[in-house]
Design a protein around this nucleic acid. Structure first.
Length: 912
DNA sequence: CTATGTTAATCAGGGAATTTGAA
DNA sequence: CTTCAAATTCCCTGATTAACATA
């Protein structure tokens, strides 16, 4: 921690704007942040001005701390209310964020009480932009704060339990289904064997077939039986009685197959102490190179781009670009993006200029000048039809096609890495197309060119046979770089980015780095206290650079921000911690901060949090005039400086480790606190809830499904229908026993307000319509049958007759609604029976409500990313073992493969 | 800047869950 | 009313590749 270095003014400071923050924070600033500073409050580097004891710095008015203030601040949070009620923007806030706020504010331990408000005029508080409506979706949330919902989790479970239990029952009751599933599973696994089997066959015509494949294949098959007993024993041990017999058996079988294969050569690298400490990643490496996408197939003669009403013939290369666009007309995200269209058209015209423009049917040149005059519809329709054709193929044909493709690609799917067979990840060269940069990427829509072998560098063992480039071509270069983990590489034409062919996630090498990642995060545990202590101290450092750094680490640690490297002009304008700009952080006295910015992938990060008063103060300083919109908040901090500092605490510690650490730590805590006693589905739900909290912490989002609003509405309608049914049943009670009205009170029998007259009438109409539809459908079907049997059809009059049932229903219900009297239904109706019915209905209403809330709260949270990248898989394995839930409930097949090391390496006492 | 890994959302396809229909 | 199968909807997975972090 060489402070002199931190001290040095950074070249990178935003001096262009004349905005330069002072190296040191003059006391005056801290005490009176209002006071304008000279824009060049620059102090000679190296001349350390001691500003007196740190304590003095916090003697600012707000720092007149006391325990009361502290408690006050806390309590106002704990119930998650005080702040919420003040928050004018609450309704605009995404639902998951609300939960986040309440949960996270708790995290930020307030230290000093703070009446900063009096101290400084408020920085303008921005409301969250309305733009976000789409992202946020219609917050149909009631006024129930989600905090409360969290607290009510237990209740939820109980309610959900009914449903879940049902689903178990149905599962257990349906052996055929299960069997089917098992079969398909085993079928799924078989190809693993089969996949490799066709390979040798193909070798004869493929020529390229490396002997690697067959080498590994043969012994596998031979040795397999030896392991069987072992595998069987394991499978049984791991999955005690719980499982249905059929399933257990089938699974055992497939696992056998798998394990027989995998385990044969299994290298339990996580038990190998000397593993992976050098930079040399392999000694021998054999592989077959890459698969190129198919050549462009010209459109049929009758399918053409139409320009200005004229069908035009294009040169093959230009036509290909036209098809890139034409085939994606249904992708509104792109086609309606002006930048996308502009970029595409620019590149399209460039190609046309090179290859010649279009020709009409007489061979006359048609110059393509205006995007608006291009009509790609015929091309789109052609592709659409092709897609449909493919879809319409019979299952057998599809299977055959798939098998063929697999056979062709088989040689590329695996490589030999230090003699062990390993799966390759992305062995297919990315096909040409239009670049789909996310967010407002300035280059979105540009043509991503076809990659030729001459661009591709191959990395392979010295002794290995170099894969043949396609006929008539050469590789760019052959390397034998043992420090690299890639097999092939090329540079893409849009951003000049490097693309690597590497091993699959389930490979040893990837597993090892995954393992190391989590071990590193675990190691952070040992240092986190020191780090936190230090940054809290440095929040008050008199050196601007230190103070900024401390503040940044605080944010990264507390709110899981990313590091935030600087970005170039031709990239989407997104930020992380170090690149936060003036407008991304809004201060809201006394010590709330609103973050609102676009993070990685242009995903919005919006959060209102409570921060340490000193952090609040610091941010205010960092935002001080003359800084304004567009200026860096951390103008004296770079990610590399930050990481360099972190590295002092622990080798290899960087900003991103905090995300891993906090995510896994959070998960560990949640799982530890969990004492579930319920059924397996209940436990799974609990796990998922914890997973969700981590996802929220990391701000992992997904786009709201297209039909989401609709399905929520549908659910709400269903609930309302049930509520109405409850009302009807209650009236039946009166019908049976008029005296009961007095006994139970009028309130009990009142129709809930949300079901107003208009709604009821509409509801009745809907019910009637539903009935009519049903009856009509049935009628038509019967008629069809009669016709098929050669008998004469029923007359339309018959239908009318039948439809009367529906009409009668409508009449009856409208009358009920008008009079408020409902005749008791069912045989031998009694008050008790009605009560029971109501109970049942209410039960259903409750479960549906829970379901709906879950769905709503989930609509934009993606659980997968945290599960794949942030949550130490060993936590899940431990949970699975401890609570006796099969790991399959948490990890899909691919994840089980990826986390093989975790599944095999821990027992239930392991801790993160 | 270059190079190499890691993390991330999206999309299409398919399997699972649910509903519907018929016996 | 139950059961079973077909139809439909829903949701998860896996593949893809962009976008980040880091040295």
């Amino acid at each position: 921690m060489s402070s002199s270095e931190d001290d040095t003014p950074l070249v990178k400071g935003r001096t262009e704007n004349g905005v330069k923050s002072q190296d040191r924070i003059p006391r005056a600033v801290d005490e009176d942040m209002d006071k304008q500073l000279p824009s060049n409050g620059h102090v000679e580097p190296g001349v350390s001005i001691r500003m007196g004891p740190v304590e003095e710095m916090e003697v600012d008015p707000p720092a007149a701390t006391n325990a009361t203030g502290k408690r006050k601040a806390r309590s106002s949070l704990t119930n998650g209310r005080t702040y919420k009620e003040e928050s004018s923007s609450e309704d605009d806030k995404p639902i998951n964020k609300r939960r986040r706020t309440s949960q996270q504010t708790k995290k930020a331990a307030p230290q000093d009480s703070d009446d900063e408000a009096s101290d400084v005029p408020l920085v303008a508080i921005r409301k969250p932009p309305k733009v976000t409506a789409a992202q946020i979706g219609e917050s149909s949330d009631s006024d129930t704060p989600l905090t409360e919902k969290l607290v009510k989790d237990k209740e939820k479970i109980e309610k959900a339990a009914a449903k879940e239990a049902k689903s178990i029952r149905s599962k257990e009751k349906a052996p055929p289904k299960r069997k089917q599933k098992v079969e398909s599973e085993s079928e799924d696994d078989v190809p693993l064997v089969a996949k490799k089997k066709p390979a040798p066959k193909r070798a004869s015509n493929g020529v390229k077939k490396p002997k690697v494949e067959s080498d590994s294949d043969v012994p596998l098959a031979k040795k397999a039986p030896a392991k069987k007993a072992n595998a069987k024993g394991k499978a049984q041990a791991a999955t005690p009685a719980k499982k249905g017999k059929a399933k257990a058996k089938a699974e055992q079988k497939t696992e056998e197959d798998n394990e027989a294969q995998e385990e044969e050569e299994e290298y339990r690298w996580w038990e190998d102490p000397g593993q992976g400490d050098g930079s040399k990643k392999w000694s021998t490496l054999e592989h077959s190179g890459v698969v190129f996408p198919p050549e462009y197939e010209p459109l049929p003669k009758n399918v053409k781009l139409i320009y200005d009403g004229v069908p035009v013939t294009l040169h093959k290369d230009a036509e290909e670009v036209a098809t890139f666009y034409g085939s994606m007309l249904n992708s509104t995200v792109n086609v309606e993006n002006p930048t996308f269209n502009k970029n595409f058209f620019e590149d399209f015209v460039a190609i046309l200029d090179k290859t010649g423009h279009g020709k009409d049917k007489d061979g006359k040149t048609v110059k393509i000048k205006k995007f608006e005059k291009c009509d790609f519809k015929p091309i789109f329709e052609y592709f659409d039809a092709e897609r449909a054709k493919k879809k319409a193929l019979s299952a057998a044909e599809k299977k055959a096609l798939k098998a063929e493709k697999e056979a062709d690609e088989a040689p590329y799917m695996y490589c030999m890495w230090d003699g062990r067979k390993q799966k390759v990840g992305n062995f297919r060269v990315e096909p040409p197309g239009l670049f789909r940069g996310r967010g407002e990427h300035p280059k979105t829509g540009r043509v991503k060119k076809r990659v030729v072998p001459e661009q591709i560098t191959i990395n392979i063992g010295k002794e290995a046979k170099v894969p043949e480039p396609p006929a008539g071509h050469n590789w760019k270069e052959i390397k034998h770089d043992q420090t690299g983990t890639w097999l092939a590489m090329w540079q893409e034409n849009i951003n000049g980015a490097y693309k690597y062919v590497m091993l699959a996630a389930n490979s040893d090498i990837k597993g090892q780095s995954d393992y190391k990642k989590f071990e590193k995060a675990r190691e952070l545990k040992k240092h986190i206290d020191t780090i936190r202590k230090d940054y809290r101290r440095d929040l008050k450092s008199e050196k601007m650079a230190d103070r900024q750094r401390a503040t940044a680490i605080y944010l990264i640690d507390q709110f899981a921000l990313r590091a935030g490297n600087e970005k170039g002009e031709d990239e989407a304008d997104t930020v992380g911690c170090c690149s936060l700009k003036y407008e991304h952080v809004t201060l809201k006295p006394p010590h709330f901060v609103i973050f609102d910015f676009l993070g990685k992938d242009s995903i919005r990060f919006y959060d209102e949090v409570q921060v340490d008063p000193q952090v609040f103060k610091n941010l205010k300083i960092f935002k001080k005039a003359p800084k304004t919109t567009g200026d860096d908040i951390f103008d004296r901090l770079t990610t590399s400086a930050l990481n360099k500092h972190l590295n002092n605490y622990m080798a290899g510690l960087t900003a991103k480790v905090f995300r891993t650490y906090n995510a896994s730590w959070t998960m560990a805590r949640l799982l530890r606190e969990m004492k579930v006693t319920g059924s397996i589905p209940e436990k799974v739900k609990e796990y998922n809830d914890a997973n969700r909290q981590v996802a929220i912490l990391c701000n992992h989002k997904r786009t709201v499904a297209a039909g989401h609003a609709g399905s929520i509405e549908k659910m709400q309608e269903k609930i309302n229908g049930l509520v109405y049914q409850v009302w009807r049943t209650k009236q039946m009670m009166i019908d049976i026993d008029p005296k009961i009205k007095k006994k139970r009170g009028a309130d009990f029998f009142a129709r809930p307000e949300e079901l107003d007259n208009e709604w009821v009438l509409q509801h009745i109409d809907a019910l009637v319509e539903e009935q009519r539809q049903k009856i009509t459908k049935k009628f038509e079907k019967e008629n069809e049958k009669l016709k098929a049997d050669g008998e004469k059809e029923m007359k339309p009059k018959e239908l009318d007759e039948r439809l009367k049932v529906a009409e009668d229903l409508g009449k009856k219900m409208r009358k009920e609604h008008k009079t408020g009297k409902v005749e008791a239904e069912g045989k031998g109706p009694t008050v008790e029976k009605m009560e029971a019915n109501i109970e049942k209905l209410n039960q259903r209403i409750e479960t549906m409500k829970v379901q709906m809330e879950d769905k709503e709260g989930n609509k934009e949270v993606a659980l997968g990313t945290s599960k794949i990248n942030y949550i130490d898989p060993r936590l899940t394995v431990v949970f699975s073992k401890k609570f006796n839930v099969p790991i399959e409930r948490f990890f899909s097949k691919t994840l089980r493969e990826k986390f093989d090391w975790a599944i095999k390496s821990v027992d239930q006492d392991w801790e993160f």
